[in-house]
Design a binder for these strands. Sequence first.
RNA 1: GGGCCCGUGGUCCAGUGGUUAAGACGCCAGCCUUACACGCUAGAAACAGGAGUUCGAUUCUCCUCGGGCCCACCA
Length: 810
Amino acid sequence: MYDISVDERWNRYWLEHKLANFDENDAEKPIYVIDSPPPFTSGTLHMGHVSSYSFVDFMARYKRMKGFNVLYPQGWDTQGFPTEKAAEAKFGISLPREEFYKRCSEIAHENLAAMKAQMRLLGCSFDERYEYITMTPEYRAKVQLSLLMMHDKKLIYREKSPVEWCTRCLSAIAHAETEEKSVETNFVHVNFEVVGTKKHITIATTRPELMHACVALAVNGNDDRYKDIIGKKVAVPLFGQHVEIIADDHVDAALGTGAEMVCTFGDKVDREMYYRHKLKYIEAIDQRGRLANADKFSGMKISDARPEIVKALEAAGAVVKIEKITHSVKVHDRCGTEIELIPSMQWFIKVKEFAGLIKDIANDIGWTPEFTKQYLIDWANFIDWDWIISRNRVFGTPIPFWYCEKCGEIIAPEKAKLPVNPALEGSPLDKCPKCGGKAVGETATCDVWVDSSITPLVITGWPDNKELFKRSFPVDLRVQGTEIVRTWAFYTIFRSWALTDNKPFEKMLVHGMVLRPDGKRMSKSKGTGISPEELLKKYPVSPVRLWAALSSAIGKDKPILYNDFDYAKSFIIKLFNSAAFVKTAIDGKKVPTIEPSKDMGIFDVWILNRLNTITKLADNAYDTFAFYEAANAVINFYWHEFCDYYLENVKHRVYSTDKKMEKSRHAAVFTLHHVLMTTLKLLTPIIPHITEEVNSMFNSDISITLAEFPKHTERKAPPDYAINGIVYNSDIIDEDYENVGAFLNTIIAEVRKAKASARIALNKEIPSININVPEEYYKAAIAAKGEIAQICKAQAVEVAQGVYSVSIKV
RNA sequence: GGGCCCGUGGUCCAGUGGUUAAGACGCCAGCCUUACACGCUAGAAACAGGAGUUCGAUUCUCCUCGGGCCCACCA
């Protein structure tokens, strides 16, 4: 019986025998490197991982069988906010920096171990000797080296600038880490008095709490209502500062009142106008999201201040009306907190100016499916900020620089001293080489994408193992989801270029998301996820992997359907049962290793040719990541041609005890065994546990995962190729045999049909079958007469030339 | 507002410039056929709508409608 214990047994076997190890000393075999995604160590795999890592493993196993020396390391993305959050929840927030770091690292290690076990259970055949973990000193040294090198190339700078800031995480975040959230809010219409007149101008704002940081009012220059007051000053209610009315094309005259206030900073547009009009800067909120410079409101949280200020405005008679509107705000994707724009000193990597170059490299990479490249191109076309790489966190790779307190000069450590932690260690230079100012260590850590955007380099031995790097970089394949094209793919391409002047990978396989059965996204917080654990309680590994293959409409999101697992499971049962039949047919005797050509029957030649065709198809399909096609073709062939027809067609030969039938029996056994074994090999990349198990039923002591992937051979019939003793034309080739076999099967199907409609049991003997066949199949039908009689349990078969028809006498 | 993907039987999905439009699940009928009733055989059932290109369109183009994703805007 097949259950998960079989999977576990083979998983152990492969590991013990090191069957998936990369051989660095092998100079013969071509190398194939897979850049498998390092999952964030959350502690558990989700169905998206199952699908994604299945694809990775399909390719690793396929390429091994194709004779490649496969380097498939698995890495782990350990650092970042969620781990810190988990550590805070578990140990509180008041731990000292180093202690806190240690706790985070413990959590990450535990989670990593759990996830690795899950991946191993799925049969993922990564070589653990090449594992990388982003929080280790070795990995950090590489990340830091990469930053030093990019600094040498003048790609890194430090600047005080309004950045997207999470007031909960107390850190700058990258634009790519933000997401949209729709919220209902008040659209408050407020009167501003034009200074020196009795006139008012009304603006509409969703952020009345930023009144105190209002530095201008903006209207559209073409708006006739306001044309004559542009340049005049208005007084800000409650706070009284006088600000200028400015004209800016951005303002939409039709929206709100056609006038808006500019605060430092309410949103991205404020930031643009601040620069465009060289406005004054007033710090509106602090890093914790509390009002600053707001008189008696200072220190209040934004959420508390908003209603208070509206109240005060109303009391002052400045509020015209309040509308309820739904608009969207940017939130931090990891914690859902609304993003604020807060000026702070941050580290940047120049990327904006390289968007064109990144596009060029993307065009030089093979994307599957092709359209996913567009995700990256679109993103490259839109980026308008450089990459903020600093995060004001603890559990991350330290930014490896010191800087001059006075002039801001960046001081880099020696490359040999890496990894460094400037938050704890003294500067390599006491004084700034430029101005003699005091050198200060940076306390910020890196954005986690800085860690993960060098994976293709790290897995190929960069920077130390130059020999391996030379042979294996760029890597052959990157597998990843569509949702991280703008982060992981984008940054990796850029960093690879910056560090090596080369593209990071030859091919990209970009897959979609696994959705719930109803087509909606799975959400952990809503508890609507389907976990691999749940699934693996119900199904062993092979149906799960087969599901991944069969649902691999690559690049598209795909709902998870239990039908697919059930189907996969029934195929596996079929495989077992048919293998049992083949084993019985062999009956402990030796199977000939060479095809007994002279004794082959038409059905043998037919099924072997079909197998040949399917082999070619599956090979091409794997090579183009068309796992659905490969699995589907092989399964349908095996199930519905081999089992449903061939197997039935040769039963009379297999069970025959007639001495005269000995050779024919032998040929059938050869064919049964050959088709079974070849099919197992064709499916081994996808369902290795089960093919290994079936293979082991046949006294094979060699792992099927070590077998060579079946080759498509041009099978030409030799001149003396006899079918049931009748010599065929020598110009008959594959396709003809396939057609002849398929045609003869339709005769058998017709007889079955006729028997069924006459309500006769299929195994009941009937007196005769009459067949009329078209000319091109006449000879074949004559040749197969005897066999058809045997297969269909008829005493006689009459064949005549004519319009195709089959009838039976009962 | 811009870009991308997708609309195929009840459900999920494959595929194609000429096909009897594949398969799965479900449904209906028959069969315990010396591997398998978790099986086998047979059956009903589909190309969103419109226009164009073409000898011919489900396939290519455009539009409409519908669904999804990404980006921008949202004072």
